[in-house]
Amino acid sequence: MTSPFRFTAPDPAGSTTGTVAAVHAQVTRDFGIESALPFVALSAAPGLMAGTWALMRESLLSGRASRTEKELVAFGVSAANRCPFCVGAHTLLLHAGGDHELAGTLARGGRPDDPDHGRLLAWGQDMRGPQPFTADEAPEFVGTALAFHFINRVVSALIDEELATGGADPAELLDSEAGHALVRAVRARPEPGLSLPLLETAGPQPAWAAGTPVGTAFGALRSAAYAGGGLLDERDATLVRESVADWDGVTPLPLSGDGLPDRAERPGARLALLAALAPYRITAEDVKAWRVEPFTDHCLVLLVAFGAMLAVERVEAGVLGVAQG
């Protein structure tokens, strides 16, 4: 069978041990999807995998805010980032939660009839606008949005979205044993904080989620992703950081065009910058130019995560600018 993974060969979930196996088990139980591809793609870097799962679990799955409303935000983020795999996943998750009409409207490219839903979707697409939720809900909504800004980039960089997106009818997918498990998981409310013991890293919590499980998870993910910057020399790391800082935090790079570091001369900087701003443009040639001995799957995953986290932080800065303005 053709692998859905680009550029890496992760171990099957059933053959893993330690942190990776523990994350897979919790994903299956609380997310309702066995061997969920974004987490399998990250499994070469266990600390990174655990941080990503913790941020998604504690923001999207746990907490008190409406799961439907958080799924709308995640859908908006994924649409803005041109991630068809994630757009399809959130459509399916809305169906699993019983929001069939809303899911169908979004799948057809429409806007929600409910004005509150429309504002949440719009905010997910451009987080520089007014926040359509209360300050108490910010850890869940901002955490969900930033989790998927990160996950979208991982998926576009490391997963073959055409192979992974089967185009099957949601009703057929949900009318199966696996579909029933997904429905049960979506309609449950997992206890907050249970992902935190899986974390292998730690870092400062963001102001918008300080003192919450979401804040702990975000700090851990950021710390794990920063490790990828160590794979670049100082000159290339500075170029990537400055280029992402100059980005507006919203507009994806076009599907083609110049302005990127040369593949032959600065392949690591090119890969990290693509992961941040246009992961769907990463090619086998880009990876081949950088991935020479001693670089491994572990290294590639970390480098992609470094670029993705810089983009997340740039988006986060726009959110904080609105909150402080």
Rank of each mutant, 00 (worst) to 15 (best):
C86K: 05
S78D: 04
G97F: 12
G110H: 14
R57N: 15
C86N: 05
V77S: 06
L55E: 04
A107M: 03
L55N: 05
A103L: 00
A54N: 04
L93I: 06
E101V: 06
F75Q: 14
S59H: 03
L55K: 10
P115T: 02
R82Q: 04
D99S: 15
E69T: 05
A103I: 15
F85D: 04
Q125L: 08
T68W: 10
R67E: 02
G124F: 14
L93Q: 07
R82E: 01
L121K: 15
G98A: 02
A80P: 00
G110A: 07
G98R: 06
W123F: 09
D113K: 15
G118N: 13
R111G: 08
R64T: 14
A79N: 09
G76P: 09
G97N: 14
H95W: 09
G76W: 14
C83H: 07
R64G: 01
L94Y: 13
A89P: 01
L92P: 04
L55S: 04
D116A: 12
S66V: 05
V77A: 03
A103W: 11
V73N: 13
S66I: 03
M56Y: 06
P112Q: 07
K70T: 01
L60S: 04
A103E: 12
L94A: 09
E58V: 00
S62I: 00
D113C: 11
G76Q: 10
G118S: 12
L106D: 03
V87R: 11
H100K: 12
N81T: 05
D114N: 10
L102Q: 05
L61H: 10
S59T: 04
L61S: 03
R57V: 01
E71M: 11
R57L: 08
S59K: 00
R64P: 00
D114Y: 00
G104R: 13
G124Y: 15
E69F: 07
N81A: 09
E58P: 12
T52C: 11
M56T: 10
A50W: 09
G51D: 09
G63S: 06
R119Y: 02
S78I: 03
V77E: 02
G63A: 05
N81M: 10
T52Q: 10
C86M: 09
E101P: 00
L72M: 07
L55F: 07
G88L: 01
E58C: 00
G51Q: 10
H90W: 09
L106R: 11
G98D: 03
L72T: 09
R111A: 12
G98Q: 04
V87G: 03
L55M: 13
L120F: 14
G88F: 03
A50H: 06
R57G: 03
G88W: 10
R64H: 11
L121Q: 14
V87Y: 11
T68E: 14
